[in-house]
């Protein structure tokens, strides 16, 4: 298969995945026990008329397949429906709050990659030395600490006690610092572990012995050859975690009262505002698929073995 063909297959797979997640998101509404309309309204104040109106508004009086086709064509047109609570259009609402979330996702991914790759590499090179033990412990801590707790601790220390950074809001770079630390630490934990394992695997490969045997300096062997090979699985994990990082913003934006899309979901969940929940979940699925498609395609460019195989 040529590179172009492979790309076409990957892109069409991604399209299928996006369609599948749309189906999944659409059917979330049918998970509701009993009548979804009744559970969305406050039973004490809802009149039969209101129930009938909302049912019609959501299109729930139509057969399922009609509803799905309608939802699908609407999404294609960029119409994700509107909020039950305040009749706001879902997509503009997402786009409006996207910058705050995007900024946080990018800064925390960057932090995670810098800390994760540095400590992961050092950990593998100095295997079983104190720096390795320390890095592994940091890695374990990173994946074990709930972000809502680390966020609260950071607020306690840096906002309440030292008063260095604001505890809430989404205006200005200062508001980004604490959430970035909290979220970036989780990602760093995952990346440290992944980079360490794949570095160790590569270090034991025969080609490393060959490189040493032909007299390359240890520095060249490690950074020029071992690290490059170890980065491939590491990039995968980074791609896979962009989704998790975005999802992590749901919690962290609640902790820091940031006006991002994570916050929209959290509020929508409280209000049982299903169109908004569906919209955001689908939106993040699309982002996830696209990021991973890019990661996948980037292998073929980074790694000559993948480029030439098949």
């Amino acid at each position: 298969m040529t590179l172009v063909n492979k790309m076409i297959v990957k892109i069409s797979n991604a399209v299928v995945s996006i369609f599948g997640s749309l189906v999944l998101v659409f059917f979330i509404i049918y998970l509701l026990p009993g009548d979804p309309v009744l559970s969305m309204l406050d039973p004490s104040t809802a009149t039969p008329e209101m129930v009938a109106n909302l049912r019609k508004e959501l299109g729930l009086d139509q057969p399922v397949y009609v509803q799905f086709v309608e939802y699908f064509t609407n999404v294609l047109k960029g119409n994700f429906g509107q909020s039950i609570v305040n009749s706001e259009q879902v997509l503009p609402k997402i786009l409006e709050h996207l910058p705050a979330t995007l900024a946080l996702t990018l800064t925390s991914s960057a932090l995670a990659v810098v800390i994760g790759v540095t400590l992961g590499v050092l950990s593998a090179i100095f295997q079983n030395r104190w720096i390795d033990v320390l890095s592994r412990f940091i890695g374990l801590f990173g994946i074990s600490m709930p972000t809502f707790w680390s966020g609260i601790l950071l607020i306690l220390i840096f906002s309440v006690y030292f008063n260095w950074f604001p505890a809430m809001g989404s205006e200005g770079w200062q508001t980004l610092v604490l959430p970035t630390l909290s979220l970036g630490f989780v990602g760093a934990g995952l990346i440290i572990r992944m980079v360490r394992t794949s570095m160790l695997e590569v270090i034991n490969e025969p080609f490393i012995v060959t490189l040493r045997a032909k007299g390359l300096t240890e520095r060249m062997v490690m950074y020029r050859h071992a690290l490059r090979n170890a980065m491939i699985p590491a990039i995968t994990i980074i791609g896979l975690n962009i989704g998790e990082l975005m999802a992590g913003t749901v919690v962290i934006e609640t902790v820091f009262s940031r006006q991002g899309i994570g916050r929209i979901v959290a509020d929508a969940i409280m209000a049982k505002d299903l169109p908004v929940i569906q919209g955001v979940v689908f939106f993040s699925a699309v982002v996830y698929v696209i990021v991973n498609l890019l990661v996948d395609l980037s292998y073929s460019i980074i790694d000559p073995r993948v480029r030439r195989s098949h």
Partner: peptide, 9 residues
């Protein structure tokens, strides 16, 4: 497809 939606979401 299930994997496209992050766990917590």
């Amino acid at each position: 497809i299930l994997m496209t939606i992050p766990g917590i979401l």
